[in-house]
Amino acid sequence: MVTSTGMISMEITDPATRTREAPKASAGAVGPKLRVSGLNFYYGKKQALFDVDLDVPANRITGLIGPSGCGKSTFLRTLNRMYETVQHGRAEGRLELDGENLMELDAISVRRRVGMVFQKSNPFPKSIFDNVAFGLRVNGLARRGTLHEAVERSLRRAALWDEVKDLLHASAYKLSGGQQQRLCIARALAVDPEVLLLDEPCSALDPIATAKIEELLFDLKKQCTVVLVTHNMQQAARVADVTGFFLLGRLIEFNTTEVIFKTPARRETEDYITGRFG
C-alpha cells in the first residue's frame, strides 16, 4: 500500500460509504484528489516543511496530527496556496489537483475549488444569509432566483438549516460558537468546493457542537474531499479514513487511521499518540 516513494495509493470502491477501507495498491486505483511530491516550505530562511510526499484520496477524510509547530497547518495552507498571502512564504515541490499542476492554476480558482475553514470561526459582520451568499455573489455563481435555494442547500449541508431558518437575516454574531463554525462551513460549501480544508475546526467547541461537526464531515465526504488538521487525536481516530503524522516539518508516517492508532510502524508515531513523546 505504501509505494517506494512513501506515497499511498487508494482504490476507491464506494465514495459514499462511512466505513473505512484499507488503502490498497492497485494498478487500476483511482488517482488521488491532491498529490503532493517533494514539498519543501520556507518562512524566509526558516524551513518549515521537508520533502513531504502525500496523496490525499478523493472522497475521504484525511487527518493530519502532530505536536504544535510540526508543520501540519503550514502543509494545509499549501494545498490551496493560502501561503501566498504570508510574507516571505515560499513553497518548492509539486502540488497537483486532479493531476493538474496546482501552482500554475489561477489562485482564485484554486481557492474556490479548495475551500478552507479555520480554527476560530470568522463569520463576516453580516447576516447569516449574506455570509453564506457572499461567495456566490462574489463569484457571480448564483442567479437572483436561485440564491435563496443555494443558501438553504449550503446551510442544510452544514447541518445548520433547522437552527437558523427563522433568523436568516439576523447577524451571524448572534449564533453560538458551534453554530458560527458550522456557518463558516456552510459559507465554504456554498461555492461547491471539491476539497475542504479544516484547520482545528472544533478546538473551541463543546462536545455536542464537536459531534455535530464530525457527523457533518461524514456526510460531506460523499460530495467532497476533506483534509482535517486536529490536535485532538480521538477526533482524528473517530473521523479520518487516513491519517498523517507530522513531526518537525516532516511527514513521519501516513497510513489508514486504523493502522496509525492501532499498530503504527514508526516509533515516533507510537510515542506521540501514546503520550510518551518528549
Partner: peptide, 9 residues
C-alpha cells in the same frame, strides 16, 4: 485514558 497503539493493544 483512551489508550492508543501499544497501550490499546
Amino acid at each position: 485514558q483512551q489508550p492508543m497503539a501499544s497501550d490499546l493493544r
